[in-house]
Amino acid sequence: MTQSTVNSSPAHTTKTVRKDNWWLEPASIALGFTLFIIYATFRAFENNYYEINQYLSPFYSPKIILEFWKFSPAILVLWIPAGFRATCYYYRKAYYRSYFMDPPACGVGHGGGSSYCGETTFPFVLQNLHRYFFYMAALVVLWLWKDAFDSLFFQGQFTFSILSLVMFVNVVLLSNYTFGCHAYRHLVGGKLDCFSCTKASQTKHKVWQFVSKLNEHHMFWAWMSLFSVAFTDFYIRQVASGAYSPMRIF
């Protein structure tokens, strides 16, 4: 490992003197992400078992069927939530630490050197487009609300199943994650310097306060919604393949 040269002194000769298990957090995050990415990639390309009756998997929603598109329709949609999460301020922190080890943990040295550019050059300068992904991801989440409501009706009849419940929980978690986004927090009011100045800014202040509350636990919502979206898809896959039942209640 290269050590910083400018500030070198005999006081700091090792990577770190931390004695706690500082590697545990980045390692488990790397494991979690990797497992999810493997599963999501497999499902996106599987192009099967994503829809049964009134139930549609969140990986394939909104369902876009195009004449010329010969591949899985999931690919037409998944880039939106993938891009939203990849440019998300929380996920950035997590993968810069876990995958890039830059830094792996606080006060722990790593492959340093002055070639570091952070988010000033390509490709990472594109992180600045996070808000565009937010706009699109927000539409996707609204669509998933529609899917959840649709799951309550089969052939015009009201019905309720555990699977619908799972879909609702999922979309609540996704909403809390999506609408607690840092970019949204900025756009909705954070950009103002004066909250009290006009009637409009007073309203924005209230929304900003609400978004700020969600934003405080952005990491929590990020992980919960990641689990729930995978689980919802998994459940629908199992139902569609005939392995599980949607567990209808009435």
Binding site: K93, Y96, P103, C106, G118, E119, V125, E216, H218
Partner: peptide, 21 residues
């Protein structure tokens, strides 16, 4: 742009300022 929001500043802040967020 050099900041890659890895949040160590927030972790060590003795005044508990949410520096990053």
């Amino acid at each position: 742009g050099y900041c890659n929001i890895t949040k160590c500043c927030t972790e060590v802040c003795p005044e508990e300022i949410h520096i990053t967020d």
